[in-house]
């Protein structure tokens, strides 16, 4: 790709400008997808940790855990390998004044969800008003052995262990036993979670089985938030496509006479097209790599309150996306190259 490289080296300013543009848009894309992932995780991380495949809720609940109340009969007629979930959102305080909005989740210590929970420190014990809590508490200054005072109640929960990635609807989760949560929610079971999907015949009337992924989509605000991000991300892809198209178009128009002569001299159209594709590929790869490096640095330097998660899949998807866009952006210039008639340029 002699021609392509020589041209880029000779026209450093022009090509650097495109690289900078691609870099800026890619950077924005990486940050946005990072935020989208981060915020999504805040909403659903705890559910992912459960590693379940379906959830049974009250039919009238619209998929919302908080609005779902299962009767004892309904719970009793479901297979007993499910995990019964009771949920209660509230404010908790420590004895030395730390505060945290939280989701209390009541479940049985023999349930598969509880058995799955990982512990980063402490022990996995929820007997006698003990609780295994999200490690968000730890980063906010809570310690093993601290007591959580539940607002508007005399309940005190003792922290016995920290568990990672335990957030639900952006709030840290406190796992406690059904007995502990009982005085707060009057012993209501909000949902039953299953490791495997149930046959429809096993689902009692008045209840509704949702796959975990559609349950997540129905978390309050979740879909709206993700859609907003998807929208912005899609727009950025379109912008980058247009920007690259315009740039390459202008560059190509400027050199059409030379391309015409090269064709007259026997340089094949294919060589010229590959040359342009190659340039497009190179500039997008350089732009994307700089964006990835800066994106990672940004993610590290941002305060931990900013929920940004730049993981491998984000980087791969964004990188490939941008490279595809820039190759697509070369399509219009390619058409011009294919169309240029040497004679039109020479016929002076």
């Amino acid at each position: 790709m002699f021609l392509a490289i020589k041209e880029m080296l000779h026209e450093k300013l022009r090509y650097s400008l495109i690289v900078v543009l691609i870099f800026l848009v890619s950077y924005l894309l990486i940050i946005l997808t990072g935020l989208a992932t981060g915020l999504a995780n805040l909403n659903k991380a705890a559910i992912n940790e459960w590693d379940a495949s379906s959830i049974v809720l009250n039919s009238d609940s619209e998929g919302r855990l908080q609005q779902s109340f299962l009767s004892q009969d309904e719970v009793a007629s479901l297979p007993n390998n499910g995990t019964r979930i009771s949920q209660y959102s509230t404010l908790v305080k420590s004895e030395n004044g730390l505060k945290e909005n939280t989701q209390l989740v009541g479940l049985d210590s023999k349930s598969f969800i509880f058995k799955k929970l990982k512990i980063t420190s402490g022990s996995k014990n929820i007997r006698n008003n003990a609780g295994v809590v999200s490690d968000k508490f730890k980063s906010d200054g809570f310690k093993i052995g601290d007591h959580l005072l539940v607002a508007n109640s005399s309940l005190r929960i003792k922290i016995t262990g920290f568990t990672p990635r335990a957030t639900l609807s952006a709030l840290p989760v406190v796992y406690i036993s059904p007995d502990t949560i009982q005085p707060l929610n009057k012993g209501v079971t909000n949902a039953v979670v299953f490791k495997n999907k149930l046959k429809n015949s096993k689902i009692p009337k008045g209840t509704n089985q949702l796959s975990i992924s559609s349950f997540i989509k129905k978390l309050p605000g979740y879909s709206a938030q993700q859609l907003t991000f998807d929208f912005m991300i899609a727009f950025l892809y379109i912008i980058i496509l247009i920007v690259i198209s315009i740039f390459l178009y202008i560059l190509t128009v400027q050199k059409l006479p030379n391309l015409g002569v090269l064709k007259a001299q026997g340089v094949s159209t294919q060589y010229l097209i590959l040359s342009t594709l190659f340039q497009s590929f190179i500039i997008s790869v350089i732009g994307v790599i700089i964006a990835i490096i800066l994106g990672e640095i940004t993610a590290i330097t941002l305060p931990s309150e900013v929920p940004i998660v730049i993981d491998k899949s984000n980087i791969i998807v964004t990188g490939i996306g941008i490279i595809i866009m820039s190759l697509l952006g070369a399509l219009i210039p390619i058409r011009q190259i294919a169309k240029v008639d040497p004679y039109k340029i020479i016929g002076g």
Binding site: L3, K6, E7, H10, E11, K255, P257, N258, G260, V261, L262, A264, Q265, G266, V267, S268, I345, I346, G348
Partner: peptide, 17 residues
């Protein structure tokens, strides 16, 4: 054109970069 013909044209013969 590449192998048998040598063109010298009225203008734009050379690649500018």
């Amino acid at each position: 054109r590449l192998e048998k013909i040598g063109f010298v044209l009225q203008s734009y013969n050379l690649v500018p970069f």
